[in-house]
Design a protein around this nucleic acid. Structure first.
Lengths: 208, 208
DNA sequence: TGGTGTTGACTGACCAGTCAATCTATTTGG
DNA sequence: CCAAATAGATTGACTGGTCAGTCAACACCA
């Protein structure tokens, strides 16, 4: 249990391999042997570390999601303007995708689907994120920076929905990727959600 | 081939049963025999009307998605303010959910979010929706109603992402449902996406 | 020597898709 | 007006292949 010093941590090896395989073939379409092969490990070892194929996916999701929840809590605790708080969260998620697109693909594509069949486990985690973001919005409303007529819960949903759709666009290859796009996307998300699509200036419309 | 007058159209029966079964158990988790049983029809008949289990899902998705694309085209062609155009689209999708939640659940959970299997097959259709909404945004930008600095494609994505997240919330029981909520949601989507979350008035913030 | 890590062949269940037979309705021709 | 012929609709038992999970044995370290 001490798992001591060196040696290629096989458990980690399996998890990382699973990410690649799930991303490439999808959770349902891949076999456990694909994961083992990808990890360069015997079939049975997967079952030494995980109770089932499902548990591998669960682990991947929870590992990452909890890091995100922690980040949101930290951000929320700091005395920053809403735009910066939402910006920090957006930044974290976009950077997560930049750093490991496969993992984010698996989380977004496979877990939402899984929330259907097994595990209210994930639903609880997802709800938690909603609520934390909702609190940030509520505070902004109390400060008078955000409109009171849009419920905080709904606002949180719109914010998260925009980000998730952004990642989905990247995952499906519907949106351009690359350093510059990632950075610009961060600004776009915050600007769209906070400022809206309409021109805020009062002046009349000008046509070319 | 004439399929003439009456008789319970078995093909339709199978499709409707499939919606219920897919919504309840998920596409992968259900058996073709479940669909046949639910439809009160022999196993083999499913294969008389459809080439495969996949084709049943394909059919369900395309049937509905094409109606939506048509609606968007019609709305776009009319000379209405952007808010009303986006409102009409939102309305259509929300009403689709109200009318047949199971079907929308299947479309969103099994197709729209399935980047590997079905999403890939229907990328064209999904992209089409993005582009049509993008055109609406572009026109609004030309009229000076929408900001030019947020790319139309991104705006379309934020809009669609918000709606999809809304339905996802309903599907997984994370958001309250019912007539009043459906109607209010329509307004909220448009107000959030167009007007943004921030208070538009210039005055300073007031603290309680 | 005991415990943890590691192996991979094997099994038991499951299920998509096939197919030959049966049924039902419509058409033909006598 | 009816019988035979034709074509589609409907049935469900069966097959072939797949794959998650098991397990008994072996390797390596303390």
């Amino acid at each position: 249990m001490v798992r001591a010093k060196s040696g290629p941590d096989k458990r980690r090896l399996i998890l990382d391999a699973a990410v690649r395989v799930f991303a490439r073939q999808g959770f349902h379409a891949c076999r456990v042997s694909d994961i083992a092969d990808e990890a360069g490990v015997a079939y049975g070892l997967v079952y030494h570390y995980f109770a089932s194929k499902d548990e591998v996916l669960d682990t991947l999701f929870l590992e990452r999601w909890n890091v995100m929840l922690e980040l949101i809590r930290e951000v929320d605790a700091q005395p920053l303007p809403v735009r910066e708080k939402l910006g920090a969260i957006t930044s974290f998620i976009v950077d997560s995708y930049r750093h490991d697109p496969d993992l984010m693909k698996v989380i977004i594509v496979e877990v939402t689907r899984a929330a259907n069949s097994f595990g209210q486990t994930h639903l609880g985690q997802i709800r938690e994120a909603y609520e934390l973001i909702g609190e940030i919005v509520t505070k902004a409303q109390e400060e008078g920076v955000f409109k009171p007529e849009i419920e905080a819960r709904f606002a949180a949903m719109a914010f998260y929905g925009t980000i998730e759709q952004l990642l989905t666009g990247w995952i499906f290859g519907l949106r351009p990727q690359g350093e510059e796009h990632f950075e610009r996307a961060k600004w776009l998300v915050v600007e769209t959600v906070c400022g809206g699509l309409e021109t805020s200036v009062v002046g009349e419309a000008s046509v070319s």
